[in-house]
Design a protein around this nucleic acid. Sequence first.
DNA 1: CATGAATGAGCATTCATTCAT
DNA 2: TATGAATGAATGCTCATTCAT
Lengths: 198, 198, 198, 198
Amino acid sequence: MARPVDPERRAARRLQIVDAGLTVFAERGYDGATTARICRRAGIGSGTFFHYFATKADLLLAILELGTAETRERAAGLEGRTDPLGVLLELVASTADDAADARIPGFVRAVTGVMHVPRIAEALAADDAAQREVLLVWVERGQARGEVRTDLTAARLVSWLVLLTGGFLERVAVDEAFTAEGERELLVATVRSFLRGG
Amino acid sequence: MARPVDPERRAARRLQIVDAGLTVFAERGYDGATTARICRRAGIGSGTFFHYFATKADLLLAILELGTAETRERAAGLEGRTDPLGVLLELVASTADDAADARIPGFVRAVTGVMHVPRIAEALAADDAAQREVLLVWVERGQARGEVRTDLTAARLVSWLVLLTGGFLERVAVDEAFTAEGERELLVATVRSFLRGG
Amino acid sequence: MARPVDPERRAARRLQIVDAGLTVFAERGYDGATTARICRRAGIGSGTFFHYFATKADLLLAILELGTAETRERAAGLEGRTDPLGVLLELVASTADDAADARIPGFVRAVTGVMHVPRIAEALAADDAAQREVLLVWVERGQARGEVRTDLTAARLVSWLVLLTGGFLERVAVDEAFTAEGERELLVATVRSFLRGG
Amino acid sequence: MARPVDPERRAARRLQIVDAGLTVFAERGYDGATTARICRRAGIGSGTFFHYFATKADLLLAILELGTAETRERAAGLEGRTDPLGVLLELVASTADDAADARIPGFVRAVTGVMHVPRIAEALAADDAAQREVLLVWVERGQARGEVRTDLTAARLVSWLVLLTGGFLERVAVDEAFTAEGERELLVATVRSFLRGG
DNA sequence: CATGAATGAGCATTCATTCAT
DNA sequence: TATGAATGAATGCTCATTCAT
């Protein structure tokens, strides 16, 4: 009698909205992305949106959390590796790969534009922390193995890695001539040089 | 009847609004910065605002243009120098100094959050171009003098300089532990190393 | 194919919803009582609700009609009585007893709050008429027997009886110190005094 | 320069909205009274409404408070009187006079329909308390002078006075045949009889 | 019958902008 | 020129109701 809720269908619908949200946030920024526009893009009615996300901010948060989860998964897949520097360079390179999806840099810009909203600032901080945590482990291992410079603390090196990937994302977003594919190699080289020490 | 406008008084008033705008945009983002709040901060009535700026976007544009003008002035002050690398490092360092004013990184975030608005994108592009133009001159001179690596085109090196300063600004904005003062020296060192070539 | 409806099961389900409706209307008022909340309280799915009542207003109407029917039954049970004043006092006292169910006064308030809806106004008028009809019979008999004052028309006396019971219900709802049990006796005494004439 | 805010104009506008609110709340109930309808009735734009009242609930509250203030003023005007029973009967009669404004009973119904909203419940309680306070003083004086029965506490007598006036208001609202003017005298007589004791 | 996902009309509220004084 | 009251378009969100399963 009671039709069991189809969780797959629900998850798919949810993802459909997440995808539309990612696209529209990237295109228009947070405030420019009206729920109406997101719904139109997702091909759903306005009421449906709120069956899946209580508020517009919750959609943003969900997207952010998806990113954080992905970071963690990626990290889990690297356990067992014994070449810390190689791992770090791969991690950095994967940021460049993310940047190739044109929506990513736009989305990042959109989110930083509403960082003054407390809940969003928190989620962003959590995402930042997750990334740093992963990087920190491998930087420390790299230092232990003598592959990474030790004149700076691991935490500080991590900040600079994030600085480089963040700046990279930003450039891709802003500068037409600066493409993720074209600059990927130079990013890796620059990071390698930076990690070895000037 | 028409009281002759006192241009000085007018300019002062205008600056007062610009300052309030810079502060509030930085604190709340573009959309979070209501004209009402900007007016309250500037100590003026809401009607007065629109005597000085036709729209809220025009205020943002004016602030941006002020920045662009400053970049040009700074560049003018450097003419005659004969040490291109030194000049470049000074230019980069001055970004770190700007970042020490807590409103700057916040303002930058606010602006990038509304980059999808065409007029703002244009102004941002103009600002970007002004910065790049200045840097380009000195990078080329540096290359001519052998102070700067020549395995990459000057334009590409400039992109990376902007990447580094942009990433730096972002980090200062987001990461409490990452201060403009504390990291300034490392920024200069990293840029020097990058410009010399790995 | 058409599974023969089990009318008993259906009636039970219906009563379950009526009960939940009574409770939630009383707690939240008509508009505050969302169908979702009523369904949750009744332990049914939102779709099921509309198998039993075409609209939310219909549920309210059904509750009202149940009350009207109860009034009529109560009246039927009094036929044959020969002490009109006694009957009237019992009728009034039974209002006080109803008021002891905390949901009744709350429900009455909720309903009067949406009296501007025509169908509800009608049902309320019907309920009012039913009550008055019963009272009218016994007031007239009381007047005929000399137990009830005759300086006012029977209809007017009935209005005042309703005024007193209505005011009583309201007080119980609003005033914590005014309890149905505690004031019941005084209600009866006041009504007796009023019916005899000042 | 700074045009002094014209407080009279502001107060007038405010009253205009209060008046429209009173009317529309009475006609449609709280939820049925959309801000759009209130604005149309007041002859103002929707934005203007919110210059005067932060929320729709605040308008209701303001109306309620106006009533409470009026109660207090009326009470102040009675100081010095030496005939407590006369004062009480006048107070009761003035309720009947209020009821002659057809909007009052409708408004009362509307308000009681949203009593589950905490802030409104509070304001209603405050209004109730103000009325009772006034009545209590004169009931006590009446008891002291032997004009009012002493077999019931003053507080309880007050509850019953409120019961009678509340029931009266309700009847006027619901029953076409029951008019404030026509029943006013009987109300006074009934209250007099009640206060003297059966 | 029972369910709950989907719908979209409708609502309170915000905010940039205008304009009479 | 300075002011702030007035405006109404635009938005996020709620909720009664429908319908495929």
